[in-house]
Amino acid sequence: QVASGNGDRDPLPPGWEIKIDPQTGWPFFVDHNSRTTTWNDPRVPSEGP
């Protein structure tokens, strides 16, 4: 069983990049398509309500 969020081996969607926040050391994700950033890994399906 693979733990949720453990998709580091999967490629990011086109136009996405991983960067590290220098203050926290946490990775965040840059979507160059929409010029936005998020803490949520785009490779992990979001949980519904």
Rank of each mutant, 00 (worst) to 15 (best):
F28L: 13
D10G: 12
K19Y: 00
D8C: 11
D10N: 12
D41G: 03
R9Y: 08
S46W: 05
D21P: 00
N40R: 11
N6Q: 14
D21F: 00
D10I: 04
E47D: 11
G5P: 14
N33T: 06
S34Y: 05
Q23P: 04
R43H: 03
P14N: 12
N40A: 13
P42N: 05
I18T: 03
P45T: 06
V30D: 01
H32N: 01
N33I: 06
W16D: 03
P42W: 01
V2Q: 12
G48Q: 15
S34P: 01
P27W: 12
H32C: 06
G5Y: 15
P22K: 11
P27K: 15
V2G: 06
D31F: 00
I18W: 01
G7H: 15
D21N: 01
A3V: 13
T24G: 12
E17R: 01
V2E: 04
H32T: 04
L12V: 12
P11M: 15
D8A: 13
N33C: 02
P11V: 14
D41Y: 06
W39E: 09
P49D: 14
P22I: 06
S46V: 12
T37P: 09
W39V: 02
W26G: 14
W16G: 03
W26T: 15
A3M: 09
P27F: 14
P14K: 13
W26E: 15
V44D: 10
G5C: 15
G25L: 09
G15P: 11
P27I: 14
P13D: 02
G25D: 13
V44F: 07
G5Q: 15
R43M: 08
W16Q: 03
S4H: 14
I18M: 13
S34H: 05
G5A: 15
R35G: 10
W16A: 05
V2P: 01
D10H: 02
E17V: 00
L12N: 02
K19E: 01
N6K: 15
Q1N: 09
S46N: 12
E17M: 02
F28M: 13
L12I: 08
S46T: 13
S4T: 10
I20P: 03
T24C: 10
P13H: 13
P13M: 01
V2H: 05
I20C: 11
Q1H: 08
P42T: 00
S4G: 03
T24S: 14
D31T: 03
R35D: 04
G15R: 06
N6T: 15
T37F: 00
Q23K: 11
T37V: 08
G48H: 08
I20A: 11
N40D: 10
T37Q: 01
T37C: 08
F29A: 00
G15C: 01
I18G: 10
A3K: 13
I18H: 01
I18V: 12
T24L: 04
S4V: 09
V44M: 13
S46E: 08
H32M: 07
L12T: 12
T24I: 11
D8M: 06
Q23L: 11
T24D: 00
S34T: 13
P45A: 11
Q23Y: 04
P13V: 01
V44S: 10
D41R: 04
N40V: 11
S46Q: 14
E47F: 10
D31Q: 07
D8W: 07
R35F: 06
T37D: 02
G7I: 15
P22D: 03
S4C: 04
P49L: 07
V2N: 12
D21V: 06
D8F: 07
I20T: 07
N40Q: 09
N6H: 12
S46M: 12
P49V: 13
F28D: 04
P45Y: 11
P45D: 08
H32Y: 04
D31G: 03
N6M: 13
I20M: 12
W39C: 03
V2L: 13
N40G: 07
Q1D: 11
D8R: 10
T38I: 07
P22N: 12
I20D: 06
S46Y: 14
R35Y: 08
G25P: 08
D41K: 11
W39T: 06
G5F: 15
W39F: 08
G7S: 15
N33Q: 06
L12H: 01
P11N: 10
V30N: 12
A3N: 14
W39Y: 09
P45E: 01
N33G: 05
S4W: 04
S34N: 11
F28I: 02
R35C: 09
F29C: 03
D10M: 14
N40S: 08
H32D: 00
P22H: 08
V30P: 00
D10T: 10
P45K: 10
R35E: 06
A3P: 05
W39L: 04
G7T: 15
F29V: 01
L12R: 12
W39S: 06
W39N: 09
P14A: 05
L12Q: 08
E47S: 11
S46I: 13
N40C: 11
D8G: 12
S4E: 13
D21K: 05
F28S: 08
S4I: 12
D8V: 09
T36K: 06
D21R: 05
E47N: 15
K19D: 09
V30C: 08
V30Y: 05
G15I: 02
T36L: 05
L12D: 01
D10Q: 01
D21M: 09
K19G: 05
N6C: 12
D21Q: 04
P49S: 10
S34W: 00
W39G: 01
P14V: 01
V44G: 10
R9T: 09
D21H: 13
T36P: 01
I20R: 10
A3G: 06
T37M: 04
P14Y: 08
D10E: 11
F28K: 08
F28P: 00
D8S: 10
D31P: 03
G48W: 02
L12S: 04
G7C: 15
W16F: 14
W16H: 07
Q23W: 06
P11H: 10
W16N: 13
G25T: 11
P11D: 10
N6I: 12
A3T: 12
Q23V: 06
E17W: 00
Q23N: 07
Q1Y: 15
P27C: 12
N40Y: 13
L12E: 10
A3W: 01
W16I: 03
P42K: 11
V2Y: 13
R9G: 07
Q23A: 11
P11K: 14
P14M: 03
D8E: 10
N33P: 06
E17Y: 01
S34V: 02
P14G: 01
E17A: 03
R35H: 14
T36C: 08
L12W: 05
N40P: 07
S34E: 05
G7Y: 13
V30G: 04
F29S: 02
F29D: 04
